[in-house]
Nucleic acid binder design. Structure first.
Length: 761
DNA sequence: TGCCCGGGTGTTTTT
DNA sequence: CACCCGGGCA
């Protein structure tokens, strides 16, 4: 077992501790993946059947890579049998086999976010609700976070606190929408992303025999990136591990950056409660980065209150200071960074793949793309619109999905009249009404128009029945033709290829190519089937729903500069890393600056960004940048101030930010007022925006606490407590504390930098 | 039923 | 600025 020798003491202890509950707190760059892979290899070498190992990762890519590395240690055949993948893909697989127990047919469809939002939109319309108030994104997030906390639609609709909360947010129909949404998903034989976890919980809770089966199967469980698991995931793990308690979780609280989607740092703390005799391993030696980078990262994270104390250190060389660039505009920022990459590429004889540009939001990529292109530096952008979300791809996938599951309403609606076959909105509306009336799927209505006496003329009826027959004819081959044969048959018989082929514009051409690429992908998928196994189209669909484009690395993208969001960079490392757009209201995002916990998450994000660098880190900010089409002035990020100047190499240090939250808020207000006049019509809606529930907060921005106007005796409006009167103001900015009397809630003390108060007079 | 124009709206982050 | 959606007209 030579591999043990290549580990330090802490790592080896973690690897050799085979049984019982354990937690590995792994600092950035401390060899976390190494410990995980070696530990799994070690389990196998100690006669644990790979078939009994469940390893849950954050991305499919991480799973694939880890599998490969374990394969190198213990042989590919062994590694193949490990159940390794994301929560979503593993439990989708299990649900696929067991879902008849919870009343779902096996061929259920997985709705992606687009499908879910589109369904929500339809529901809001059908209920004649205000679509400005019930925006699909807001409703989706609300439902999603309910599911991630295992609150079912029924429980949601009955819960008084939630009802009160929704009322206060002026969205009293939320529960009803949630109920209808679930009903519709079920009728469509579909599950959304969150359902995959929610329904797994239902399955394991209500069916002890199923639970026992998997408890016995998964004798050893490992969870990577534990800090980013949500409550629903936590409960699944807790159930599965309850029998053997051979549970190893690995994570780093300092790198928890998915709070916005329900990740719960509490899970780390709960671990101690659930398994009091657990073993804790701390990996603190960093092997990735220079001393400067490690030190800087430590000083950044030290500003957070919420954290598990640890000291990340390194024996690596000192390294260069962090270079800080100031740019006048976003475009200049792009040019500076591109030039810097060009120079460092030469100087260090580095490869292009050694460089990464990391930004907070996808929208920032543009200026870097342009500048890199001008210098002929090859680059690859991750994120943005994924391949599988492109219209032409979703269209073709909709044909596949409908073939596999006739009741998939979103797919049906997408393609019933694309390409054009003369089945218009009016006919579809009639069918939708009938579907709702009879409580059956849209497909059922359309396949039996006479049974439900649809008021549609005979011409349309025959067009509909042609369509139904077409899809049915595809479906007869689901279990005979392999995925590729059926897919290409569908693609050519549904006229979609022809439609795209006739479009000779560059966009049309690229759409055609994309569809070809999808078919090629299916061919590869089909050809890669293990011996004696045929892969069918439904197998592909299960895969594709949970695939992201980060999972498909193309060989031609080898040796290119990487452009991605900081979130996407989690778990990766590069010799040269540029963290760009270090400005207030961008990084940290303006949606986070009003709450300490949100701000701390932004800081962890910054920590993640900096710790991606091995040799050298660069930071940059622009003094002005285009946002929503107009030039806005920017302040350097507060995070820059948190770095000791002795680590920084800059021509000019950014001026200290005014320590005054009112000042920052003022900037926002100016920005807001600077918009076209008709925009102000949206302003009154601000009153409805809840500051306490950021998951559903509107994007119109939060009301600024205008310190100029706020006086003792002022009448104010608080989203939770309603109207109130300021009794007392004390403290200096930014820590002004207000004592406010609310007739409905009594006297409250509010810190103005957190509480969002609207001054009424 | 389909296309074009204009207004409104949006930027976190993703399985 | 760029996209999407809805309304109006052909």
């Amino acid at each position: 077992m030579d591999y043990l020798k290549s580990l330090n003491t802490a790592q080896r202890d973690a690897v050799e501790n085979l049984e019982g509950p354990m937690m590995v707190i792994a600092g950035a760059g401390s060899g976390k993946t190494r410990v995980l892979t070696y530990r799994i290899a070690h389990l196998i070498n100690n006669n644990v059947d790979p078939f009994h190992i469940l390893a849950l990762t954050f991305t499919n890519k991480a799973a694939k890579e880890m599998k490969k590395r374990i394969g190198e240690l213990v042989g590919e055949g062994e590694a193949m049998n490990i159940w390794m993948g994301t929560f979503h893909s593993i439990f989708a697989r299990i649900l696929r086999m067991e879902c008849d127990r919870i009343g779902y047919p096996r061929n259920f469809t997985i709705y992606d976010t687009q499908d879910s939002k589109s369904l929500i939109k339809t529901i809001v319309k059908e209920y004649h609700l205000d679509d400005k108030l019930y925006k699909p994104g807001i409703v989706y997030n609300r439902i999603s976070s309910a599911k991630n906390n295992l609150i079912s639609a029924t429980a949601y609709a009955k819960n008084d606190d939630i009802i009160a909360d929704d009322r206060m947010n002026n969205r009293p129909k939320m529960g009803e929408i949630y109920m209808e949404y679930q009903k519709r998903c079920f009728r469509s034989n579909a599950m959304d992303f969150d359902d995959l976890l929610f329904k797994t919980n239902v399955l394991l809770k209500d069916h002890p025999d199923v639970l026992h089966k998997y408890q016995h199967k998964f004798k050893f469980i490992l969870v990577d990136e534990y800090q980013d698991t949500n409550y629903s995931q936590y409960i699944i793990i807790k159930r599965l591990a309850a029998l053997n308690e051979n549970l190893c979780v690995v994570g780093d609280d300092a790198q928890s950056i998915y709070g916005f989607r329900g990740a719960n740092i509490q899970n780390i703390l709960n671990f101690k409660k659930d398994y009091p005799d657990f073993k804790l391993f701390k990996l603190e030696q960093n092997y990735r980065s220079t001393k400067v980078i490690v030190d800087v990262a430590n000083t950044i994270i030290a500003n957070n209150v919420d954290q598990i104390k640890k000291k990340v250190w390194t024996e690596n060389g000192e390294g260069d200071k962090i270079k800080l660039y100031k740019a006048l505009t976003d475009n200049e920022e792009g040019r500076i960074i591109a030039n810097s990459i060009f120079e460092n590429h030469q100087q260090h004889q580095a490869k292009h793949l050694d460089f990464a540009i990391l930004y907070r939001t996808n929208a920032q990529s543009r200026s870097f793309e342009e500048a890199l292109r001008k210098l002929n530096i090859p680059y690859k952008i991750y994120g943005g619109l994924s391949f599988y979300q492109r219209k032409e791809i979703k269209d073709l996938l909709a044909y596949f999905r409908l073939t596999a599951n006739f009741h998939d309403e979103e797919s049906l609606k997408r393609i019933i009249n694309y390409p054009k076959r003369g089945i218009g909105k009016t006919s579809l509306d009639h069918a939708t009404v009938a579907a709702k009336e009879h409580g059956v799927s849209l497909w059922n209505i359309l396949a039996n128009p006479d049974k439900y006496s649809l008021p549609i003329n005979n011409g349309t009826k025959s067009k509909i029945s042609d369509f139904i027959a077409l899809i049915k004819s595809f479906a007869t081959k689901l279990e005979t033709d392999n995925a590729y044969v059926l897919a290409s048959n569908i693609a050519s018989s549904c006229n979609l290829l022809k439609e795209l082929y006739t479009d000779k514009t560059p966009e049309g051409l690229s759409r055609f190519e994309n569809v070809q690429e999808l078919l090629n992908g299916i061919k590869e998928f089909t050809d890669n089937a293990p011996k004696d196994e045929v892969r069918f189209l439904s197998d592909f669909l299960l895969d594709v729903a949970l695939l992201t484009d980060a999972d498909s690395d193309k060989p031609e993208d080898y040796n290119k500069v990487t452009l991605m969001t900081v979130h996407a960079a989690k778990g990766l490392e590069f010799p040269f890393v540029y963290v760009v757009g270090m400005e207030e209201n961008l990084f940290p995002s303006q949606l986070s600056v009003n709450s300490r916990s949100d701000l701390e998450e932004e800081r962890r994000l910054f920590y993640v960004a900096v710790t991606r660098a091995e040799k050298k880190a660069f930071l940059s900010y622009a003094v002005s940048r285009y946002r929503w089409g107009n030039l806005t002035q920017c302040e350097p990020s507060r995070f820059l101030e948190e770095i000791d100047e002795r680590f920084i190499d800059a021509d000019e240090f950014p001026a200290k930010r005014k320590q005054n939250t009112a000042g920052i808020q003022f900037e926002n207000t100016a920005n807001f007022l600077g918009r076209p006049a008709n925009r102000t019509s949206a302003a009154p809606k601000k009153n409805l925006v809840p500051p306490n529930l950021k998951k559903i907060s509107s994007t119109t921005g939060s009301p600024a606490v205008d310190l100029e106007k706020l006086k003792e005796g002022s009448n104010v409006l608080h989203a939770r407590f309603g109207k109130g009167k300021v009794v007392k103001l004390e403290g200096m900015a930014p820590n002004v504390k207000a004592t406010v009397y609310f007739p409905s809630a009594g006297q409250k003390q509010l810190l103005l930098k957190f509480a969002k108060l609207e001054v009424l007079d």
